[in-house]
Design a protein around this nucleic acid. Sequence first.
DNA 1: CTTGCCCACTCGTCTATACGAGTATGCGTG
DNA 2: CACGCATACTCGTATAGACGAGTGGGCAAG
Lengths: 261, 261
Amino acid sequence: MASLPSILGGLDPTSDRAVFRQIADQLREAIDRGRFKEGEKLPSEAELVEHYGVSRMTVRNSFSILQGEGLVHAEHGRGVFVRPRPPVRRLASDRFARRHREQGKSAFIVEADAAGSHPTVDSLEVKEEKAGQDISTRLGSVRRVLARRRRYLLDGRPVEFATSYLPLDIARGTQIAEPNPGPGGIYARLEELGHQLDHFEEEIRARMPSPSEVKTLQLASGVPVIHLIRTAFDTAGRAVEVCDTVMAADAYVLSYQLPAT
Amino acid sequence: MASLPSILGGLDPTSDRAVFRQIADQLREAIDRGRFKEGEKLPSEAELVEHYGVSRMTVRNSFSILQGEGLVHAEHGRGVFVRPRPPVRRLASDRFARRHREQGKSAFIVEADAAGSHPTVDSLEVKEEKAGQDISTRLGSVRRVLARRRRYLLDGRPVEFATSYLPLDIARGTQIAEPNPGPGGIYARLEELGHQLDHFEEEIRARMPSPSEVKTLQLASGVPVIHLIRTAFDTAGRAVEVCDTVMAADAYVLSYQLPAT
DNA sequence: CTTGCCCACTCGTCTATACGAGTATGCGTG
DNA sequence: CACGCATACTCGTATAGACGAGTGGGCAAG
């Protein structure tokens, strides 16, 4: 790495911009310009204290800004690093097309294998429970539902946590209530049960994660989540499944096709 | 407000959870339980210092966690407040259907009026410029484009910043290059120019905003942005417009319909 | 050579203090 | 009554120091 003064400038004491913001600005710019590359270690707090002649808390304040922006992450005992952008998973709008269900494996596995990643699914939990207000409304005022929870990982990194809710009168006693829903997933089973799927509705929000989401998805600070709620409708117009998904936002690009008519 | 000790507990010195995290936890829980309501003022730093018997920086650290989660926001000289959830704007997947173009006003204005909000559009800028790498690729290797920038506000609050890019051979000299594109917006103009629209492609990402985005959208800390890139294709299969939109994530829910076939 | 310990360096947490700047309230003056 | 200022209270910024804990490299003992 080049010497600090050659990368980072000095402070402008006449500026009314706070010192810790000025430092954050300089670091951010250096990162944007590629002076510090992905995964590379930034100068240590002590070095920056030395370089700028400020106190350590001021430097830490600067780092905390950049952390909030998701630009860097700190590792205890090692240093502060430029956060590498993880490979993203693209979700196409035809990902639930019937032809994708014809193969044996789940969409997630197939797709990840194709992308050269190592996919895993864990945290299996399948149980009957009371439907929350929102889920109940979406499913047409059902009281109890079958809930299927699972977590998806790519190369060991958790990227998505999803819960499917199905009305008990549809799912109880079927393979949908088994830990392994069989080839083609629950959508294939639903169609076998006579619920031919007609269309899906997806609602998308983005927000900062709750502490429990930070834990399950092992999210770095400064990484938002995409919250997707999908409702599946059969040809009779009935909502047969609601899937509530929380995704690490830095791991996903969603893609949709809209008709112009 | 009830007395502090009745709302907030004490610290657990045996816990290995950091004190400022414990304080943040208690405040978060109190907010979740509705002990502090939306828009309500939290105890001041001084009061919490008193209540917990810790130093002020520790309390501030707690607040900064909650700010990062988008739960609270601080107002200089006034206090720290529970962040109210703003009314959200729902974007339906049929929002570009041709029938919506038949009326005179823009989709944004019509929809906001219907919702009882006061819509504004500002920051008009229309100019020819060099296309960036990404835009150029999406439009099929054009070098120069017409860029239309505008910012959308609801009841005075900026919620969205959008830039449309159009190939010069289509847009130059037409009403699309005027500040006001006329009734039905640029999509109506494109169709009049013989580019019958076939479908749209939308790519969605979520991330923390850049400093400039924080400024234009007046974003509170802890609010991510939704980054939407829409490409419009005509019936000849040509990409005729790319629209790059950055939205305040707390102001939007996107909604899509997917076919199951 | 290998093992294990020590130490230097890193970030994490916390205290105590100081001053600045924005806000709101009340009181006194006109 | 109206205005303006003083003041108290709020958060913002910054310093200096202390100790803890994770990491990694080097050195010494076996």
